[in-house]
Structures are given as structure tokens and as C-alpha cells.
């Protein structure tokens, strides 16, 4: 397995050495790597305010171990990882399966060295935000977020911050939406910046909300709930499978299932399902390949008017108007 040692940072000093180590070069805001190792996009952007965004969407053609050893220890990396399939992320103190259905939101201090093991044939899909600690503290203060021991966190000599979590649905859709734009050019940059702002807004909101953090939930239960979530997403075109069946699947009582689901995703199973269904509907409408009634049928809505009313309730305008004004 090829081992590549590199660093990230809240400025662009890391880009060139990283590109060299990957055997590629920097071209504009892209890191171009020969296609026999990775195929796809690596895009970085300095967003100002000591924030750097880094977007990866590549097919990995070789087994690679990316070792992150940062030369600068003054920043925090927020990694949104929506890779389908298994990726192992580890350091001396933890080993973690990362990906869309595992932990997909990592907040890791730059002072920590990490290993990112990639298997050949897998696809990496992630959005990273590197932010200076001082900036983080400033944001946190401004947003009235009480990180426990904020000073400890922002002072790299005292402590390191690690956090594993699952990103909210909105964040997922934000990153997924980026995929639809062709990388490169000023408009793309605008979109990247926009995504950074929206993700941060979402992130800080989540941090400030006093809801039970996932780490407090029993690990097995968490896995089961995520499994049902995955099940729902994979069957997004079907009609809602009753709570009963899902609870049975998760091996829990119905009330426990409902409670835990809400705790972890912040939504009831039905709302979660419906919202994702509507996002799918929106995506299909945007593609402009199907009529409204075809989409309604495809997504197993009982009838068009029910679909239209749900769509309108969620997005604020009817599917027809949505298509007309695209």
C-alpha cells in the first residue's frame, strides 16, 4: 500500500506539496493527479476569513494510505464525508469507519495525526473546511455557543478536539447539490463559498442546540437506527413502511424506536422519509425528464394532488410552478 504523508491547513501552503506527493500538479484551483491513481475532482478554495474549503470527488484506483501530519497546528478541520462504502479513519487513539452511513461528520484538531485508508475501486466524496482556531473561537463566541472549555480547545498546547457525529440531512443535500455543478470558474467558487457558509451555519446551530449528542446513545442502537435510515433512503421510491416493520427490523419496541429515531435524526421516521422523498422529487423535476404525475407515481404518492400539496407545504411552491420557473 502506498503511503502518502501530507498536511492540510487554513491557508494554501499545503496544496503544492500535497499535489507533488500525489504525483500531480496544481492547476488553477484544481489538484490534477494522473488518472491511474485517482480519477475525479480535487478542488480547493481560499474563502477568506482564515477558511479554506477542499472538495474531493474521486475514484480511487490504488490502495492508498493518506497520513495527515500537519505542519501547522493552528486550525480545525471539519470533514463532511459522504463516501458510499467503507473508509477507515484512524489515529493512535481511535479507529473509525467513515462514510455516508457511518460517522460522516468529523471535527478534528490539526494537532492530531490521522490515517485515512482508501481501498482501490472505492469512491471518495468529501467536503472539508479548514478553519483557524482563533476564527473558530470568534465564531463560537459570536454565535453564543458554549463549547465546553473553549479556551482549552482553541489553545493547541492544552487539548485537542475530536468529534464524530452525523451531519444533518440539510448538510448532506448541500454537498450533494455541489455535485451537480461543473467544477471551475467564478460561479463555482461562489457556490463553494455559499456551501461553506451554509454548512457552518448548520454546524453552529447544531452545536448550540442542546440536544443529546450521538455519543451518549448505545452504539448498537445507533447502528440499528442508521440501518433503518439507510433502508428508508434505499427505498425512497416506495411508500412508507410502517413503524411496526421498521421497529421489528431494528429489534426494538415501537416506542423505543420512535424515540431513538427522533433523538438521532431530529425528525420522526415519517418526516424524515417524506422530506427525503420530496428532495428526490425536486431532483427529478430539475432533470426535466418526467412530468409531475410521472414523478408522483414513481415516488408512490397515492395521487398527484397529494404530492403537489406535500411539495407545496415543504418548499412553498407547487411542483408545476417549480418546473415552469426553472
Amino acid at each position: 500500500m502506498k503511503i502518502i504523508e501530507h498536511s492540510y491547513g487554513a491557508d494554501l501552503d499545503w496544496v503544492k506539496p500535497f499535489a507533488n506527493k500525489l504525483g500531480g500538479k496544481v492547476k488553477g484551483n484544481f489538484i490534477i493527479v494522473p488518472e491511474d491513481t485517482f480519477k475525479g475532482t480535487r478542488y480547493f478554495l481560499d474563502c477568506g476569513d482564515d477558511i479554506v474549503a477542499y472538495y474531493v470527488d474521486v475514484m480511487n484506483n490504488k490502495d492508498v494510505n493518506l497520513v495527515q501530519k500537519n505542519t501547522k497546528k493552528d486550525f480545525i478541520g471539519i470533514y463532511y464525508n459522504i463516501t458510499e462504502g467503507d473508509v477507515k479513519y484512524s489515529s493512535d487513539s481511535f479507529v473509525l469507519n467513515v462514510g455516508r452511513w457511518k460517522y460522516n461528520l468529523l471535527v478534528i484538531d490539526s494537532a492530531l495525526d490521522t490515517n485515512y485508508k482508501i481501498k482501490a475501486g472505492s469512491r471518495s466524496h468529501a467536503f472539508c473546511i479548514f478553519m483557524k482556531k482563533t476564527r473558530m473561537a470568534y465564531f463560537a463566541k459570536k454565535n453564543n455557543i458554549n463549547f465546553k472549555n473553549l479556551n482549552k480547545i482553541t489553545d493547541s498546547s492544552k487539548n485537542t478536539i475530536i468529534r464524530f457525529d452525523r451531519m444533518s440531512d440539510e448538510s448532506y443535500h448541500l454537498i450533494e447539490e455541489l455535485q451537480r455543478f461543473k467544477p471551475g470558474g467564478p460561479i463555482y467558487d461562489l457556490n463553494i463559498r455559499a456551501t461553506v457558509h451554509l454548512l457552518l451555519s448548520n454546524f453552529f446551530k447544531k452545536m448550540s442546540a442542546t440536544r443529546i449528542i450521538i455519543q451518549t446513545v448505545n452504539k448498537l442502537d445507533l447502528e440499528r437506527i442508521i440501518e433503518t435510515q439507510m433502508f428508508l433512503i434505499n427505498n425512497i421510491e416506495e411508500s412508507f413502511p410502517s413503524i411496526e416493520t421498521m421497529a421489528l427490523k431494528a429489534n426494538m419496541s415501537e416506542s423505543k424506536f420512535k424515540n431513538l429515531f427522533k433523538k438521532i435524526t431530529g425528525k420522526t421516521p415519517n418526516t424524515f422519509f417524506m422530506e427525503n422523498k420530496l428532495m428526490e422529487a425536486k431532483r427529478l423535476l430539475e432533470e426535466n425528464q418526467f412530468s409531475v404525475s410521472q414523478i408522483s407515481d414513481r415516488l408512490s404518492f397515492t395521487n398527484n394532488s397529494y404530492f403537489a400539496s406535500k411539495f407545496k407545504a415543504h418548499f412553498g411552491l407547487s411542483p408545476k410552478t417549480f418546473v415552469n420557473q426553472l
Partner: peptide, 22 residues
């Protein structure tokens, strides 16, 4: 008055501008 409104608005605004130009 929500703390996360500021970055949210920033993001939305940039997206709008992106959409417009697009």
C-alpha cells in the same frame, strides 16, 4: 435573531448570485 442566521444568509446570498449568473 438566531446566531446561525448570519452565515446562513451569507450562504443563501452567494447561491442566489451564483444562480443568477448561471
Amino acid at each position: 435573531f438566531d446566531a446561525s442566521f448570519d452565515p446562513y444568509l451569507k450562504g443563501i446570498s452567494l447561491k442566489l448570485l451564483g444562480n443568477f449568473l448561471n
